[in-house]
Amino acid sequence: MSEGMEEGGSIKKFMYMNRKAPYGTIYALEALEVVLIGAAFDQDVSLAFLDDGVFQLTKDQDTKGIGMKNFSPAFKALGDYDVTKLYVEKESLEERGLTADDLMDLVYEDEDDDWAEKPSIRLVSRDELKAVLADQDVIMSF
């Protein structure tokens, strides 16, 4: 059972799996739309970025030349929706020649800590991510 069970309704641990790169297919964009809508439901939300999903978070995305909308700025709004746990797998970055410096700077304001600005991206190892996944109630895949 999840820890967040409360009277009058249960809070579930929702994990959004992001394993696909943006633009080549619509999955990453439509997954983000679900996360933004889902934020209104007051669940315990986490996002995992692994495999090609890490490419969704690169900075300096510029889609002018392909005629598609650059949706990467929407990730910066997640903190305002209380979506503050973005697990990014280190091994997936390394396998793709990326480091954390290649990713957008994503932050949230922690209401429990005098609104201090904190990083939303949590770099985790594959084993750490495995433990996070094992603890979820609902896993959304796109």
């Binding site: 579930k12 679900v34 809508i37 439901f41 669940q43 609902v138 959304m140 895949s141």
Partner: peptide, 16 residues
């Protein structure tokens, strides 16, 4: 899309 989130909350298992 809220119907998808709601299904995740109300169902015991969500299968995609």
């Amino acid at each position: 899309l809220g119907q998808l989130i709601e299904a995740g909350i109300q169902a015991d298992r969500l299968v995609t």
